[in-house]
Amino acid sequence: MTPVEFANKYDLEILSVGEGETREIRGIYCCDLLSLVMGRAKEDDAFFTVMANVNTIAVGVLADVACVVLCEGIRPDELTLQRAKEQDVTLLLSQKDSFRTALDLWKELQR
């Protein structure tokens, strides 16, 4: 499933589309401590967090995740959004918490 397919099916807002129409999500990683995310998120994971600052985008780029999913309706500031677009990072926004949002994706990945 691609990030855009996931967003459309579960009503997430697409803040930045990046490569979200073509890239396949292969795993899930949930964490708010960016230091841990850097070392532990895998390439092509969907990364779920409430940490909506510009460094979240940098971590997303460098760890090469398939998409960043901001949860609990926490919106990024303008700089963060701009950076996501510049760097082609797929950035989604969910109103649900990390667990429930990730659970929806998990079910899809089990199909």
């Binding site: 708010d32 401590l33 960016l34 230091s35 841990l36 995310v37 070392g39 940490m51 460094n55």
Partner: peptide, 10 residues
């Protein structure tokens, strides 16, 4: 900001 967890050098 989500850093400073002592993971940098490791």
């Amino acid at each position: 900001l989500g850093f400073g967890a002592g993971m940098g050098l490791p």
